[in-house]
Design a binder for these strands. Structure first.
Length: 116
DNA sequence: CTTCTGACTGGGA
DNA sequence: GTCCCAGCCAGAA
């Protein structure tokens, strides 16, 4: 972590929020951004945060439960394993549509209960 | 110091 | 449905 202990950065807060996603559910980059900063536009920074995960963190942080607003696996994560992400989600019971899309109204996660 | 880029999103045309 | 643009945060050149 590169942020100050008393003032966790947007980066660190995003990772902490991803850890809260329950098994078998998914959320979007925009939702994470909204939960940790109150702004949807920080979604891009969330994606950057997950891209910077270490090999060790990639095992403790459920990064595979984060998809884009369409419910699809994002493009460049293919270098880390888009196929792996889908495989991990299906193993948790997440279903993909014919167009490789997840129904967020079924598997979508809105954040911790009573967070706001 | 400035500028660009990226696992993104919402709004307008 | 499509395409384009601005905004968000962090890091690299």
């Amino acid at each position: 972590m590169t942020e100050h202990a008393d003032r966790p950065s947007f980066f660190a807060r995003a990772i902490a929020m991803v850890r809260r996603i329950p098994e078998g559910e998914v959320t979007t980059y925009g939702q994470i951004s909204l939960l940790v900063s109150g702004r949807v536009r920080g979604a891009r920074a969330v994606g950057y945060a997950l891209a910077a995960l270490d090999g060790r963190e990639s095992e403790t942080v459920p990064w595979w439960r984060v998809v884009n607003r369409e419910g699809r696996i994002s493009n460049s994560n293919s270098r880390s394993g888009a196929h792996l992400q889908r495989q991990l989600l299906e193993a948790e019971g997440v279903e993909f549509g014919a167009d490789d899309r997840i129904d967020l109204s079924v598997h979508g996660w809105d954040g911790p209960e009573g967070y706001f």
